[in-house]
Amino acid sequence: MEPFTTLTGLVAPLDQINVDTDQIIPKQFLKTIKRTGLREGLFFDWRKKQDGSPDPEFFLNQSRYQSASVLLTRDNFGCGSSREHAPWALLDQGFRCIIAPSFADIFYNNCFQNGILPVVLKADEVLALMKQALGTEGYRLTVDLANQTVTTPEHTVYRFEIDPFRKDCLYRGLDSIGLTLEHERVITAYEARRKREAPWLFSDIPS
């Protein structure tokens, strides 16, 4: 996984609440057995007008947001299905950081597994940034994971909270499975104890 340290990037604003993973990446793109190449499915239904032609109003169809790496959005982003295809598609589009007042749980987890930093800011802070990003061409933010800050071009600094363990994994780009496997002996000891307490949990599934 790619480490996340600091990022100064163009901001793409998606001014909508409750954006669900069915919208981020519709089901027809879930048939893949790969993690890559999901960009064409990102917000697929929202990119088109009724007649199937590209909708120039949709933010990601506008040339000014083409190289954006920071997605700015509203409450409860990523709700719905657990599909990790959602962060994969966002990453494929170039987003490394998503800023919102709140995220749905599973999506929030999935971001960390893929080197994406989800930043929770206060609703009024997001609102202020949203105004700026919508009104200012080429609006960029600097996101600093070590210091847990988001800095605007006007030098306003917003602080965000993040779980220390997750921060560390993301900052160093650690393989989380490898980390867990370092506790192999503890896991084995747990299993041995548990097998005595609840042996029925260890009977094999007959195929």
Binding site: S82, R83, N109, N110, Q113, S176, I177, T180
Partner: peptide, 9 residues
Amino acid sequence: GIGTSEVEH
């Protein structure tokens, strides 16, 4: 529910 990376985990 979990994501695919966690399925692997």
